[in-house]
């Protein structure tokens, strides 16, 4: 198991290298540098700045330096926020984003799995059609539509929830709903499909032939297989949540990593944006690894 985890980590290295190279090339190919700001800097100051950030070196040297630093988990200084390193900014923004993302994912799983399984057990009955129509609505309403509509309803017309910022748990309600609803709907659809399939499997028929209660058949015998496609979906789900957090954090004014990314991109803050992209890339690789290990725990037939 440990050697499998290590092998998977090593296998991720080419992925990360390509990611890094792509990010580097794009950054350097981009028109306009970070110091092309509003007013022209004196040539000497400009040269000093470029020397400080090693922008005067040949490209391959900059590239080598960057890879070296990243390998040591050092994403360099931010161009925009002088005197602050990208590491600091990530350390500052990530916990906020993580809290939001984890809560959204938890919401999606806790509500989506039972909803989908119950729909499957009432297949082609009104409850099933109802649940699946709701799920389809959830998938079809983008988070950046849901968020302002919720603000309109719960914050503008009624003063039930705060429209933005952080502080108490109430601040998280709308962002989590906005970020988690589509995910929940998707999970429900997956859970329905897999449950229908497993309920037709031979071993569920065996369980029923043993006279086990309906509850035990569903929650003990059918559940693991019903969860399998949802576990596979966790990787893309995490990526989706990261993407969604960019827009949700912007809408609700949450000082997380997503907002830093948007600000950094608009300000041409090379190192910050690259740092965030790489950080997310590493995160997704690690997350997928965790998902694979979870898979093995769920299905004893998988061997490493």
């Amino acid at each position: 198991m440990l050697s499998y985890a290590l092998r998977r980590l090593l296998g991720a290295i080419p992925t990360l290298l390509i990611l890094l190279t792509l990010a580097f090339v794009m950054m350097r190919a981009a028109p306009g540098g970070p110091f092309d700001a509003d007013r022209e800097l004196p040539p000497q100051v400009r040269a000093n700045l470029e020397a400080k950030y090693h922008l005067d070196e040949p490209l391959y040297q900059q590239y080598g330096r960057y890879i070296w630093d990243v390998a040591h988990f050092d994403f360099g200084p931010s161009f925009q926020y002088r005197d602050t390193s990208v590491n600091d900014l990530i350390a500052q923004g990530f916990p906020v984003s993580l809290k939001l993302g984890a809560a959204s994912l938890a919401f999606a799983l806790i509500f989506g799995i039972p909803l989908g399984m119950l729909a499957a057990l009432r297949q082609n009955k009104p409850a099933d059609y109802g649940a699946m129509t709701v799920a389809m609505l959830g998938i079809s309403i983008p988070n950046f539509v849901l968020a302002p509509l919720m603000i309109l309803l719960f914050a503008v017309y009624n003063d039930w929830l705060p429209a933005g910022g952080l502080g108490s748990w109430q601040n998280y309600v709308m962002p989590v709903l906005a970020l988690g609803t589509a995910m929940m709907a998707y999970v429900a659809r997956l859970a329905r499909g897999s449950t229908i399939e497993v309920m037709r499997s031979n071993y569920v028929r065996t369980a029923r032939a043993k006279g086990l209660s309906a509850a035990r058949v569903v929650w003990v015998h059918a559940l693991p297989a019903a969860l399998t496609p949802i576990v596979s979906f966790l990787g893309p789900a995490a990526a989706g949540i990261i993407t969604g957090s960019v827009v949700i954090e912007t809408i609700f004014g949450i000082p997380g990593l997503g907002q830093f990314f948007v600000q950094g991109a608009l300000n041409r803050d090379y190192t910050l944006v690259m740092g965030v992209v790489l950080f997310y890339g590493i995160l997704i690789v690690l997350f997928n690894l965790a998902v694979d290990l979870l898979y093995g725990w769920l299905d004893p037939r998988v061997s490493y």
């Binding site: 992925t15 990611l19 792509l22 990010a23 993407t243 992209v277 997310y280 890339g281 997704i284």
Partner: peptide, 8 residues
């Protein structure tokens, strides 16, 4: 697949 393309 593992690339965060949206960001790119």
């Amino acid at each position: 697949y593992a690339m965060p393309f949206l960001f790119f």
